[in-house]
Design a protein around this nucleic acid. Sequence first.
DNA 1: CATCGTGTTGCAAGTGATTTGCATTTAACA
DNA 2: TGTTAAATGCAAATCACTTGCAACACGATG
Lengths: 138, 138
Amino acid sequence: MADSIIDSLKAGGKKLTKPRQAILAILESNALPVTAAEVHARLKKAHVHMDLATVYRNLTMLQELGLVDPVGLREGQMRYEVRHGREHHHHIQCRGCGRIVDLMLCPLKKLTQLVETQTKFAVEGHSLEFFGWCPQCR
Amino acid sequence: MADSIIDSLKAGGKKLTKPRQAILAILESNALPVTAAEVHARLKKAHVHMDLATVYRNLTMLQELGLVDPVGLREGQMRYEVRHGREHHHHIQCRGCGRIVDLMLCPLKKLTQLVETQTKFAVEGHSLEFFGWCPQCR
DNA sequence: CATCGTGTTGCAAGTGATTTGCATTTAACA
DNA sequence: TGTTAAATGCAAATCACTTGCAACACGATG
Ligand SMILES: [Mn+2]
Ligand SMILES: [Mn+2]
Ligand SMILES: [Zn+2]
Ligand SMILES: [Zn+2]
């Protein structure tokens, strides 16, 4: 468990509970973004009983602290991945099997071709959305 | 009602029903992406009675035919916008008021700066995801 | 180490968006 | 106009996610 994570929790007035540690362990052991249900399932497989609501509450809280990033792939559910020690990046998902691959790029140039070369995927489309504050809300 | 749309429907073995025409009219009269609930509400305001399920079924079908594009802004609901006669583009949404603005760009270079200059928004983050077919599913 | 205050959790119930089953229309065309 | 597949309304069902609340557990303090 990284110190930076512990520090962030402390700074946010959060406790390092047993269930929370278990969730973080799952997240840190996973390179790819996972859903709340997946985290819950892996916990069960590791014989750690925990309510799904607790998983959701923690993922939300960790996101608010900036410790995990949300990944929306239009699957009807959100995914999350730990930020700690990893570069900002994007993903590509196969429409057939749902497989997700990290794209360790972002400057977004020669986009599609580069993505195809790098992943061997056949790019069919992409989703790009920005978020921010408009003049009225600034 | 554009001929290209009628042709696509026919090609897909779809009927041009009264409710369907009403939905398409709403979509075509809207520059920005709308939710199923919004379409439903605008129909009601125009004194067109229709079940929400019908709206959903049509939006899904129109998307499958490639007549509308889905727009996911992590609002907990999907948005849709007609494709007909419009360039491929992206969006920016204000985290404060939810206002959505079309970004008539895509080559994605000098990304954030260009977006900020063009919209006067303060970009806080963005979501970029690709979709395609992996080697195993090709 | 015992105590206290606040954050946390489990459990059950609640939401909100989207989907589905089915009997009843309706569009398309012969 | 008759036939048939597609479409619709309505009600119920899913699904992902959230929330209320009482019991519980960190972790700071003495
Ligand atoms: Mn990733
Ligand atoms: Mn648009
Ligand atoms: Zn990026
Ligand atoms: Zn694009």
